[in-house]
Design a protein around this nucleic acid. Structure first.
Lengths: 202, 202
DNA sequence: TATCGATCGGCACGGTGCGTGCCGATGCTG
DNA sequence: CAGCATCGGCACGCACCGTGCCGATCGATA
């Protein structure tokens, strides 16, 4: 006990790291409701100034906390089977979006973003567009290998794929289950797949 | 002038109607930021109690204000050409979702809903699912007339169509323009249309 | 017409959170 | 050891939510 004094009073980068961790913990335990600057400060034993010295606003802190856990697992695998790779990734993303800590933080950022168009642009650029881009990369590769038709406009397709997932997890109340993902992929493959046996259940 | 005294102090249904109108006015003028109960009360010259006697929460008022202007123009036309009817309706909805007063109110409701799962369910039921349903009705008719393939799972298709629009207008920062709608309809028709000349630009 | 109760506007309150100032204490750096 | 940036703690002003209380006003009922 005496080896680790109660509050070693870390500073600099160590404090930054700890604050992000506390934010994630709060999101996991208290959910959306626990995500206030004051709550983070209280739990971390930290003055609000220490937080505002690092992030200009509550939204900035949340965005950083989000990217702290959301940047990994963003890349699609490439097994040579687009549908399989998309399905696997959508299942992973869908679960992450629906679970703490990512779910509550995403919701908090979205709530903040409704009142702030600059934040909305940042959210879109750092997360939504990034996810769309990696989706676009994967299906573009599939187009080159002939799995998808050559004349398909894949930019819109990537937006439709990602947008539907975000719609379901953040605006709708339905869960992102396998049926939803298969239904979405059915439509995508029926539209742009080159093999005709695209339906999942057939 | 003297015929209409400054404040006739209306009550009952008349006040209710007026409060909804003031809410819509505020949304049109001040946008999301102006949508607080206190602001509505101030502008209407009304005590907050008069508002809370009618709606149990801020979210309830906003939902009512939304349905006050959003229930019309929800139905698709049926010209016999699905793609044309969907396109027309998506253009209308997209514009409405992006403009005051509907845009700001929708944003406010969404922001509130992130913290309240009951409200999220209500929002989904009264608006999102309703729009999906009328879309489903229209494309189901098209399936019966042979414009769409018989084995298409149209429930997911309706969700994808509506979800993409909501994603773009409420989470993304891109406008709902004709290119986006045509791209979305390209994918939908390529997947489930029965005529092969489905691409818009061809 | 007189009465009475429901509704009204106005005001104040407690609670919460945001973002900012100020203070004296603490810990790193030179 | 000296100096200084960072720290925790506290308080403030502001805004809003939802509630309680008051006396005024309106309208239905007697």
């Amino acid at each position: 006990m005496s080896d680790t004094p109660a509050t070693p009073r870390r500073r600099g980068a160590a404090r930054t790291e700890e604050l992000l961790r506390v934010t994630l913990d709060l999101a996991a335990e208290a959910g959306y409701a626990g995500l206030s600057i004051e709550a983070v400060g209280r739990r971390a034993g930290v003055g609000k100034h220490t937080i505002y010295r690092r992030w200009p606003s509550k939204a900035a802190l949340l965005l950083d906390a989000l990217s702290h856990v959301w940047t990994r697992d963003l890349d699609y695998r490439d097994t040579g089977d687009v549908r399989r790779d998309l399905r696997e990734q959508f299942l992973r993303s869908g679960f992450a979006l629906s679970s703490p800590p990512i779910g509550p933080i995403y919701r908090a950022v979205i709530a903040e973003a409704q009142a702030d168009s600059v934040l909305r642009a940042t959210l879109h650029e750092r997360f939504l567009a990034t996810v769309e881009q990696s989706t676009l990369d994967r299906i573009t590769r599939a187009q080159h290998t002939g799995e998808l038709t050559a004349d398909a406009n894949l930019e819109f397709a990537a937006e439709v794929l990602c947008g539907t997932l975000y719609y379901r997890s953040l605006l709708s109340t339905r869960p992102i289950d396998e049926a939803a993902i298969d239904g979405l992929l059915d439509m995508f493959m029926a539209a742009y797949g080159t093999t005709d046996q695209g339906l999942s259940g057939h």
